[in-house]
């Protein structure tokens, strides 16, 4: 039996604070973008917070992750500095990438985040290589690789999962199935009902969980991390979830109905966990309110400080092409 997150004050607080921080951060980003204050594009994970949070709660601080183009949640769940994230989106010198990466390339190697990735499935082989490095260095670290349903149809996915499987590498493959690869529904992109069925083809365990249930995500990740640390190899976890917002800023939601979106909003992962925490008597309503408002304040504070930071410098744009 794994720990009941909703009954443990410390874990419940972390889980709620992280999910609310992701939610508030992305709402703020959406708003800044709409007001023309953020350049480029972005991919929001609102509605998917339980997956990033549940997985990262089951990892140790020095475990590693690889992330995706929809990576703000993973980044925050792995402990990133909100001000440096926001500064990156605002094209500031103090941003994680000094304005060279933007939303799709934030990494925080010191905290074990090897980076978001603008290429679908691009991070999966990298996660396997990082897992190989742990083996060769004799560490007990584990690498969790986040990717979407769309990535499971890329060649990189197949090659990487196979390598991790044949070498028993300490990798946890986390497929965030948010139902659509941009506009392509999983029902049209796969001949199988569950993407986790593919794990069998590589001889590794595969499970499907409700990705909007943080406890379910956490439980399966704990099992997968234990296997990985014990040298028993990788596990494939498919987390069924849903993105409330469009794929990116160009999305007009022509491929799905308003009813469908509303239906998924009723399965809000944060609301569900709040209800569980309250029912368990771990926190009361006002304590939950406090966690919410501190997440909001932390994001507001990060925005204010990031706005005040110096812009990324064009005269130094050639810096960091080579190490």
């Amino acid at each position: 039996m794994t720990t009941k997150l909703c009954q443990e004050p410390e874990l419940a607080r972390r889980a709620l604070a992280t999910m609310w921080t992701i939610r508030r951060f992305e709402e703020a980003v959406d708003d800044l973008f709409a007001r023309g204050l953020i350049y480029g594009t972005m991919h929001l994970s609102i509605g998917q917070e339980a997956t990033a949070t549940g997985v990262c709660l089951a990892l140790a601080d020095d475990d590693l992750i690889t992330s995706t183009h929809r990576g703000h949640g993973h980044c925050i769940a792995k402990g990133a500095d909100l001000e440096r994230m926001m500064a990156e989106l605002l094209a500031k010198e103090t941003g994680y990438c000094r304005g060279r990466g933007g939303s799709m390339h934030i990494a925080d190697v010191a905290r074990g985040n090897l980076g978001a990735n603008g290429i679908v499935a691009g991070g999966i082989p990298i996660a396997v290589g990082a897992g190989l490095a742990q083996r060769l260095q004799g560490t007990r670290r584990v690498v969790a690789s986040f990717f979407g349903d769309g990535a499971a149809n890329e060649g990189a996915f197949h090659e990487a999962v196979n390598l991790a499987a044949i070498w028993d590498l300490p990798v946890v493959f986390v497929c965030e199935n948010n139902q659509y690869g941009m506009s392509m529904p999983t029902s049209r992109a796969f001949r199988i009902p569950r993407i986790s069925q593919r794990a069998a083809a590589y001889g590794i365990p595969g499970v499907t969980v409700d990705g909007n249930d943080i406890q379910a995500v956490y439980d399966e990740t704990v099992v997968a991390v234990e296997r990985a640390r014990a040298g028993e190899g990788p596990t494939f976890i498919e987390a069924i979830t849903y993105r409330w917002k469009g794929h990116s800023k160009s999305d007009k939601n022509l491929y799905r109905t308003r009813e469908e979106i509303e239906e998924w909003k009723s399965r809000d992962p944060i609301g569900r966990f709040e209800a569980a925490v309250e029912a368990a008597g771990t926190f009361n309503r006002s304590e939950i309110e406090t966690i919410r408002s501190s997440a909001r304040d932390a994001v507001r504070d990060a925005i204010a400080r990031a706005h005040a930071a110096p812009d990324a410098r064009p005269d130094e744009l050639r810096d960091a092409v080579y190490a």
């Binding site: 082989p125 990082a130 196979n162």
Partner: peptide, 22 residues
């Protein structure tokens, strides 16, 4: 390695990021 050029090079990228010299 198996015949997986994309996987092999990706594994090298990840190993290099994690402190190795592949």
């Amino acid at each position: 390695t198996p015949i997986s050029e994309l996987g092999i090079v990706g594994a090298a990228v990840g190993a290099a990021l994690a402190g190795m010299r592949p």
